[in-house]
Each structure stands twice: as C-alpha cells, then as structure tokens.
C-alpha cells in the first residue's frame, strides 16, 4: 500500500468528519431560539442533570469557547445523555449499530455478487431477454421508494401468503444467552423481508454498471489477444474480463454506502426493525435532542469510515489509483 495515498485519504476522511462535527455544532446554534434553553428546558430533565449539562457544554460561556468544549467532548466520546432513557447516548446507539449493519451490509454484498454475475451474463449475451429485463428494471428500480416496496412485500408475503412475520426483529421470549441458535434463526427469519427489499433495489444498479464495464472491457485488444490464444470462455470471463470490469463496481459500492446506511431508516420504519434509523426516528418524535444529534453524527462517521475502507480496497485492487 502506497503510504502517501493512504495518508491523503485518511486526512480527507478526518477532515470530512471534522466538517460534519462543525455542521452539527452550527446546526444547534443557527436554529431559531436559544440552544441552551432547548437543552435543559425539557421538563423531563432533573435539575442536577441540568446543572451538569450547563457545565459540560459550557452553555454560559461565549460561542467559540462552547465550540472548543464541544469538540473536546466529541473527541472524548461524550455525546451527552439521552433525555428519554437517561443513559449516555453513545451506549444507546452502540446497541443499535449491529442491527442496522446486518440488514444493510448483507444484502449489499449479496447484491454485488449477483450484480457481477448478472452483468457478466447480460454483457456476454447482449440483446437477450435477461439483458432487456435488466435495462428496463434498472431505470425502474431507481425511482421506486424503498419503503413502498417494503410495504408491498409485507402485503404480499405477510398478509396474503403468510410466509414471513409482519414486523419485529425476533420472536418475543427468545434470548441470545439461553437459546443462541433459535435466537439467530428467528432474527434471520424476521430480517428476510427487510433484506429482500434492499437486495431487490440494489441488484439492477450493480448489474448495469457491471454490464457496461464488461462491454467496454470486451472491446479491448488484450481480450482479443486472449481469445486468439484459444483460452476457454470461463477463463476469459473469470480471469481477464472480471478483474478489469469489477473496478467501477467498487467505486459505486463506496458511493452507494452513503445512501444505503442513511436510507435504511425508511425500511426499518416499515418493519419496526429497531436499528439506528428507528432509534433516530423515535428519538426525534420524543424530541430527545442529544440522541438525535449523536445518531446523525455517528451515521455520518460510519458512512465516512466505510467510504474510507472502500477507497483503500479499491486502491489495493487497482494500482492505477495509488500511483495515478
């Protein structure tokens, strides 16, 4: 790994997070009304917590000092205390992160695997039925609201066919400690429809990008050279085409992460899947400001981190990026 490239990307990611933190801070202070009032005027906040909040955020000090304090608190991981649960927000959020990552990352990786295969196939058999279907569906799926598709799937699979549960994450009464396998099984059963939703919506996009990349790679001279050597179709597609065509897919993956992690909120809402998104919605409805703010900040940090990793993977696979 080229060290300079790594350093530049890392600085970028850190700066992006910094901008997000500043934005977060400015948002509170640019909003109409007194931010301090908003923080401790909530009747649910006991007086000693109120004093603690004023001290912790330096709400009686000038703005620039407040900003420094805010930065220090963020760096220490002190993002405040949730009004509704009276627990540190970081702790509340940490419990929810795995649930969101599970229903977003698994279908995304599956969609990429399927997209690679579909893209190879449709590019090889251009003009076939699958190709036509893919190109039609590709435009359609980009305009289908994810939550609507989720609702339709619930309608079909839970109401009419009664195959999958309506909502929730696990059968009540099961616990991970007592019966780990039936717990995991139940979670997978409940996660099937949310995952299916995200999977169905992301496959055509990846497949189309892959298809176009494969088509352009197939026109290259080295493919002709490989074919003239008389190698088999499997080796040609698997070794020469796949390696070169998969690159745009990875950059698409890193860009789509922004939408996938942020957009999971909608699907979580439909299925009452208690992840980061639903936590944020419920916090927002309860006007639990510290929790909403921290949840937004952590979602942003997660996406930036995921992007950073995806960029590194891309540079690792494609030497042209590192030295370009």
């Amino acid at each position: 790994m080229n060290r300079a490239y790594f350093a530049r990307r890392f600085a970028m990611a850190l700066l992006a997070i910094g901008v997000a933190v500043v934005l977060n801070f400015l948002l509170i202070h640019l909003m109409p009304g007194d931010p301090a009032h908003r923080f401790y005027a909530d009747p649910r906040v006991p007086p000693e917590v109120k004093q603690e909040i004023i001290r912790l955020f330096g709400l009686d000090k000038p703005l620039w000092q407040q900003f420094l304090l805010y930065m220090r608190n963020v760096l220490r991981g002190e993002l405040g205390v949730s009004y509704t649960t009276q627990r540190p927000v970081l702790q509340v959020i940490a419990e929810r992160i795995p649930w969101t990552l599970a229903i977003t990352l698994i279908p995304t990786f599956l969609a990429i695997a399927c997209g690679i295969w579909l893209g190879l196939w449709t590019a090889w058999r251009r003009g076939g039925i699958l190709d036509f279907l893919l190109r039609t569906l590709g435009t359609a799926t980009s305009s289908v609201p994810s939550f609507w598709l989720a609702m339709l799937l619930v309608m079909i699979f839970s109401y009419w066919a009664r195959i999958f549960p309506l909502m929730g994450m696990v059968k009540p009464g099961l616990s991970l400690a007592e019966a780990p396998w039936s717990f995991i099984g139940s979670v997978a059963y409940h996660a099937a429809l949310p995952m299916l939703t995200l999977f169905v919506l992301s496959v055509p996009g990846y497949a189309l990008v892959m298809r176009n990349a494969v088509i352009s790679v197939l026109g290259e001279n080295y493919i002709l050279a490989a074919q003239s050597k008389g190698i088999s179709q499997t080796v040609l597609l698997g070794r020469h085409v796949l390696k070169n065509a998969v690159l745009p897919l990875i950059s698409m993956f890193s860009l789509s992460l922004v939408g996938v992690i942020g957009g999971a909120v909608l699907v979580e809402q439909v299925f009452s899947w208690y992840g980061m998104g639903l936590l944020m919605i419920r916090a927002a409805q309860a006007r639990d400001f510290p929790l909403v703010q921290a949840a937004a900040l952590i979602t942003i940090v997660l996406t930036i981190a995921a992007n950073f990793v995806a960029d590194l993977v891309q540079a690792w696979i494609d030497p042209r990026i590192r030295y370009g």
Partner: peptide
C-alpha cells in the same frame, strides 16, 4: 473539489431528520 469530496459522503436522510427535529 475538497468540499465536493466532503459533501459527497454526507448522508442526506439522517441530516434531514436532524434538521426536522429542530425546526
């Protein structure tokens, strides 16, 4: 271009929810 790189990785929906919570 630096600003572009930063803004491109900001997720829209959580930010909208955040703003909507306040105003």
């Amino acid at each position: 271009m630096f600003l572009v790189d930063v803004v491109m990785v900001l997720p829209g929906l959580p930010l909208m929810i955040l703003v909507a919570t306040y105003i």
